[in-house]
Design a protein around this nucleic acid. Structure first.
Length: 630
RNA sequence: GCCGAAGUAGCACAGUUGGUAGUGCAACUGAUUUGUAAUCAGUAGGUCGCCAGUUCGAGUCCGGCCUUCGGCACCA
């Protein structure tokens, strides 16, 4: 006699064992029709699940987040079924739900092509029309292994074999297709109404690049066609913001074959770059950093001492001269230790903060390059703080505050913090790592900041805190970083004389706020879709004349505004005013200044703000004030 | 690096079964002297990513390489 309690507190008593779908029917036929699954005492189950004891029950429909997830998961199964019907030699592996959709990895020797995606998708919709029942089957582990082995599904068998023996296993069947799955799934294929296969990619079996490569099919799935359309539209919006497109359109930079992963900055892009750099330079000055500059080419032996050669020699560009081997620096820290080491330091000198906009080269694998976001040559707002271990917490706290301040200034609010602890490939003793990790965690906890743990993701010399921004494509970009390093100062013989006269090794904090300026500029471009705020805009205002008669006046105000420090150009071409306004609007110029006969007569300018807002005519001084106080 | 796709004029793209490469915008020249998102006309512009090959003939077909794009792995 199970008593079922619903989310609103209402209760219903049933005479005997009852299934979820029967409970739903007892409430209303339409609810039964919509039911995808149910949450029973906090656990998700199928609609066929039987209830034999008292339980709290909530029917899950496509209106719930859990419902959407089930739809995506079931769509992944549908993809696998449709694929195996067309390509019986393709073996199934895994098909999880991801943000906005799902994927399924197949082991398929012949490989798929984009054309296959269309065929598979068609077949999926065909199976939806057949409204196949999706049923759960329970099986013992060893029986399941044998079952999949017999079907020639070796990957699946391997997955199941790695599951503990006593755990009950569930399989799901729809038509002839059977897959291992925890579930739950939608009751039948008719519930899968809006999906699209998006792209084809390679992916390593079990995420390990020593394993063979599988064929991954990505798809998106939604509760209805409307949501699917909205999602596709969102993707288009993201594409519109692509920094590579905007960079070309606004002539900010370009890349070319002869320098893969290295940026050719055009005048306008370089202005933006320099604004970011100068802003960070001022931040250094205001926060007691000393800006220094160190060589780009440093003898291999130093990289051997620092430990970089062992770990990253393959990713370093090297060059030789007179029988000596040099590496182009991939980072600035060993060089900063060399500056620190000039002259004996006292505890009174600490913390000593060194900063550098040093040009670094890393030979990143070709497949990783991505516009100006992931490059082989970049400059960071790089800094190293040499301090005593008792000073770590204060330094970390001050850095966190500073970082948030900087991000806010650039217009970023959505920031996540991640904490990465010791990786497998590392230098330094466990005792030293214990010390470093706890110092970082303590600083975070004292500030009351929540963070996500990334186990084993630390740098080889120390644990790190990462500051992660989300861009318009919902991709995460790690910008800021702070790393505690007890190892490198020791390896490179850095010392200070302590209060008691003893010789000690300082701790080194590696830190950056915007990180790679190249990447940060890319993020800014996408964040603002090319319409940069006035303080960042390479061109802040453009002067347009109506006709030749105002040439002289236009030239005079251009000079005057430039003298006031504004970044101004004039467009005096013999074109209609509408045409010129259109062009500069498309370039997202913050202000368009129009001068015609009236303006010449009054010695004023007519100001049009980005977005088409007419601010009327005003004297130059008023405009300068407007822009500088914006 | 691995899997898949792509590379044609400054940019965005078309190019059929292999038969001497096109369109739009931009550029240039001329006319027009214009009042808030496209004035008109004309001209010029290409070793079809690179290298080899098949063919009487290759943008198109085969092979290799480079770069880019989407992922995977990587990211000091």
């Amino acid at each position: 006699m199970p008593i079922i309690t619903f989310p609103d507190g209402a209760q219903k008593t049933f005479d005997s064992v009852v299934s979820v779908i029967e409970v739903a029917k007892s409430i209303s036929p339409s609810l039964a029709k919509m039911a995808l699954a149910a949450e029973v005492d906090g656990k998700l189950v199928d609609t066929a699940h039987l209830l034999d004891v008292d339980a709290k029950l909530a029917i899950v429909t496509d209106q719930d987040a859990a419902g959407l997830e089930i739809i995506r998961h079931s769509t992944a199964h549908l993809l696998a079924q449709a694929t195996q019907m067309l390509y019986p030699n393709a073996q199934v592996t895994i098909g999880p739900v991801i943000e906005d959709g799902f994927y399924y990895d197949f082991a398929y020797k012949n490989g798929f092509s984009e054309a296959d995606l269309g065929k598979i998708e068609k077949n999926m919709y065909k199976l939806v029309k057949q409204n196949l029942k999706i049923e759960r089957i329970e099986m013992e582990r060893d029986a399941a292994v044998a079952f999949f082995q017999a079907k020639g599904e070796h990957y699946k068998a391997e997955i199941i074999a790695s599951i503990p023996k006593n755990e009950p296993l569930s399989l799901y069947q729809q038509g002839d297709f059977i897959d291992l799955c925890r579930g739950p799934h939608v009751p039948s294929t008719r519930h899968l109404k809006a999906f699209k296969l998006m792209k084809l990619a390679g992916a390593y079996w079990r995420g390990d690049n020593n394993n063979e490569m599988l064929q991954r099919v990505y798809g998106t799935a939604w509760a209805n066609k409307d949501d699917l359309e909205k999602y596709l539209h969102r993707l288009q919006e993201a594409e519109r913001r692509d920094h590579r497109k905007i960079g070309k359109k606004q002539s900010l930079f370009h890349l070319q074959e002869e320098s893969p992963g290295m940026v050719f900055w055009h005048q306008k892009g370089w202005v933006l770059y320099q604004i970011v750099k100068q802003f960070m330079r001022d931040i250094f000055i205001d926060n007691d950093y000393q800006e220094v500059h160190t060589p780009q080419l440093i003898d291999k032996s130093l990289w051997q001492k620092s430990g970089h050669w062992d770990k990253f020699s393959e990713a370093m560009f090297v060059t030789g001269s007179e029988h000596r081997e040099y590496a182009i620096k991939p980072m600035n820290c060993p060089a900063h230790v060399q500056i620190y080491n000039q002259g004996l330091k006292s505890y009174r000198d600490l913390p000593l903060r060194l900063a550098e906009f040093g040009s670094c080269h890393r030979n990143e694998p070709s497949g990783t390059l991505h516009g100006i976001m992931r490059v082989r040559n970049f400059v960071q707002d790089d800094g190293h703080i040499f301090c005593i271990d008792t000073q770590i917490q204060d330094e970390v706290a001050a850095f966190i505050d500073l970082t948030f301040k900087v991000y806010q200034h650039f217009g970023f609010e959505d920031i996540a913090i991640k904490f990465s602890d010791r990786p497998q490939k590392r230098v330094g003793s466990d005792a030293v790592w214990d010390k470093a990790e706890s110092a970082l965690k303590k600083a975070l906890n004292v500030k009351g900041i929540s963070w996500e743990l990334q186990a084993g993701e630390g740098a080889f010399y120390g644990p790190k805190i990462e500051f992660v921004l989300k861009d318009c494509l919902q991709r995460e970009w790690q910008c800021g970083t702070l790393q505690v390093d007890f190892s490198m100062p020791e390896r490179l013989n850095a010392h200070y004389i302590a209060k008691d006269g003893s010789k000690q090794t300082p701790v080194m904090l590696h830190r950056a706020i915007v990180g790679s300026i190249e990447r940060f500029v890319g993020i800014l471009i996408e964040h603002y879709a090319g319409a940069l705020p006035t303080w960042l805009a390479p061109i802040q205002a453009v002067i347009l004349n109506i006709s030749e008669k105002q040439l002289d006046f236009a030239t005079i105000i251009e000079k005057k505004l430039k003298k006031q420090g504004l970044r101004v150009i004039s467009d005096l071409r013999n074109e209609k005013i509408g045409f010129k306004i259109r062009e500069h609007s498309q370039q997202h110029c913050p202000y368009i200044l129009v001068v015609g006969d009236k303006e010449v007569e009054n010695r004023q300018i007519s100001v049009r703000q980005r977005g088409g807002k007419d601010l009327g005519t005003m004297p130059l001084e008023t405009f300068v004030k407007l822009v500088t106080t914006e």
